[in-house]
Simulated assay, not measured.
Amino acid sequence: MDLNIPFDLIVTIVNKGGSETIIKATKSAGAEGGTIIPGRGTGIREQKKLWGIPIEPEKDIVLTIVPQEKTQIVLDAILEQGSLNKPGAGIAFVVDLKKVVGICHMCQLDT
């Protein structure tokens, strides 16, 4: 079934353990869930060493698919509740999705 609803993917990268705050923020703003993927940071703020050995901090990557009409509301909630306006707190960005399948709960069947 083809959904005629435009969707966005919000990608949020935060320090390990911060994903629960992001998921709560997205749900409170109208998203229905998300996917959490573990990752490692290599940004400018992650260049720390312990006994001369580089440390790569662990990150949580949260993927959230939302209808485009909810994107800004969800992104604002992520910014505020995740404190992403503070240095080193994380980053979020939006990717336009051309096609989405597998989210049948959003389909409205004509009967």
Rank of each mutant, 00 (worst) to 15 (best):
E46R: 04
K27G: 01
I73Q: 15
I103W: 08
K24A: 00
S83G: 06
T64H: 00
N15Y: 11
P67R: 12
G43C: 09
I53N: 11
V100E: 10
P87E: 15
F93Q: 08
Q68S: 15
N15S: 12
V62P: 02
T64K: 00
L63W: 13
T21R: 04
E56N: 14
K86D: 12
P67M: 08
G102I: 05
L50E: 14
L75A: 10
I73G: 05
I61N: 07
I22R: 02
K86E: 15
G52H: 09
Q68G: 03
I73M: 12
V101M: 08
N85I: 03
V66M: 01
E20C: 02
E58R: 06
G39E: 12
G18P: 10
K49H: 13
I36R: 10
Q68T: 11
Q81L: 11
I55L: 15
C104Q: 14
R45E: 14
G17F: 06
K59L: 05
L63N: 11
G88P: 10
G43W: 06
G30E: 07
V95R: 02
G88W: 07
G17Q: 06
I103Y: 09
S83T: 01
Q68P: 03
L79Y: 07
I65N: 08
G90H: 07
K48A: 13
S28D: 15
T35S: 10
I23T: 01
D76S: 08
L97I: 11
G88Q: 04
